[in-house]
Design a protein around this nucleic acid. Structure first.
Ligand SMILES: [Mn+2]
Ligand SMILES: [Mn+2]
Ligand SMILES: [Mn+2]
Ligand SMILES: [Mn+2]
Lengths: 219, 219
DNA sequence: AAATATATTTAGACTTATCTAAAAGTTAAT
DNA sequence: ATTAACTTTTAGATAAGTCTAAATATATTT
């Protein structure tokens, strides 16, 4: 069994590894996990001793197969609980993350599989992120950053790079939801803002917002 | 906010206070919580400083109103989660306690009330224990220990003194469930064993077993 | 190749919760 | 009133996880 702290480190490292393709170093982890570099050093040593990751200084960490397996288990739990909170307890997608951060650490050999079955094996969480199955297999959808879409192209909103509640609330306000169809109408060269159109309305989004929207291209 | 350890002490003290009417002293708590008397001393000091309980040595502890309120909140969470696990995830009553021990510490201002509403405001947990409402109010059912029931009297199995999985599995094996009708057929003077009859079968139970069954008398 | 900027580790401290072993206090028994 | 039994507290350690400040190592720039 692993402590909550250990699980959080593994999960964070996995996510960093898959989101950014850069080197995952001490400071980056410290930043994401909201702690200090010295604390990360300590934990890296511990996880390395347990062979959950390898570490070369200045070259960053790399999860071992075992480390990745554990990370995926925690992510699976997190996302299934988020799904539960939204679908069964009527939370909205911007309210569930902090509760799932706690629920993901509940220890039981059977709980999460029973929950999954109760939820009828959902494949994605409320933020469009894929839910790893029992064996850690994960569906990868081919998506493109909205920043890289040309004028006239169409797609559907598949998932988000940033799932912070601030961003989610922004999307609520702008009436943008997962699976909405989005068409790029115009790109403003001055500030890279993007004029888009959904099935119901049009709006202009900033470069920063566009960068956080992953689009599945329709052809 | 209170730590898991603090919550567990408060919950345990509350339960001891309501089950046994004796003095709740350091050793008794240590025993229940599976720790050492010296650790209990430390925690008692801490909880006393926070005015969650009062303590006079050799006279035991007493929860303050605030302490009792928190204890009831934890118990409410524990029992609602147990209900969820049995009713929604199809666990049996002997499997849920350890998971609920963890779930009862999840922090959220809304989670447990939403869960309660989703479960349609159950009044009792899978072991027959009453679920405190939002305000900490708790239904008290008048029950009698099966040991105190005379030959010929009838009642229904209302709740259990001991809800350990060993005892629950014993009840499964003997086909005794909550709300079953039970009639006392005979009491053996030699060892106080009791011959009982349900709607479906007859059996003999030991004094120890009878002592753990709370019966609601039928008249 | 130095100098400077970054990244990383160490040293030492702190907090929470635990433990063992010993000391001290209270109650009960003779 | 002593003694014995039990309860409680203290003292000192330990473990996990965190922190700050200082030291050290590596990378980048000049
Ligand atoms: Mn989340
Ligand atoms: Mn999510
Ligand atoms: Mn229980
Ligand atoms: Mn119960």
């Amino acid at each position: 069994m692993f402590s909550q702290a250990e699980e959080n480190y593994l999960k964070t490292i996995y996510t960093l590894q898959n989101r950014r393709k850069t080197v995952i170093n001490t400071n980056l982890i410290a930043d994401k996990i909201n702690t200090k570099a010295s604390s990360v050093t300590d934990m890296i040593k511990k996880l390395s001793a347990k062979e959950l990751l390898t570490y070369k200084k200045y070259k960053g960490v790399q999860l071992t197969e075992m480390g990745e397996k554990i990370a995926l288990k925690v992510i699976r739990k997190h996302r299934l609980w988020e799904h539960f909170l939204v679908k069964k307890l009527n939370y909205s997608w911007d309210e569930v993350h902090d509760i799932a951060e706690q629920l993901e650490h509940i220890k039981s050999d059977t709980l999460i599989d029973n929950l999954e079955s109760y939820l009828q094996f959902p494949k994605f969480d409320p933020h469009g992120d894929p839910i790893p199955d029992k064996d850690g297999k994960i569906i990868l959808t081919k998506t493109v950053n909205l920043l890289n879409i040309k004028v006239g192209q169409k797609g559907t909103l598949d998932s988000l790079k940033d799932s912070s509640d601030v961003f989610l609330k922004y999307l609520n306000k702008k009436r943008l939801a997962l699976r909405d169809q989005i068409k790029v109408i115009d790109i403003e060269p001055f500030d890279n803002s993007i004029h888009i159109e959904t099935k119901t309305h049009q709006l202009v989004i900033s470069k920063k917002v566009a960068d956080n929207l992953n689009i599945k291209i329709l052809r």
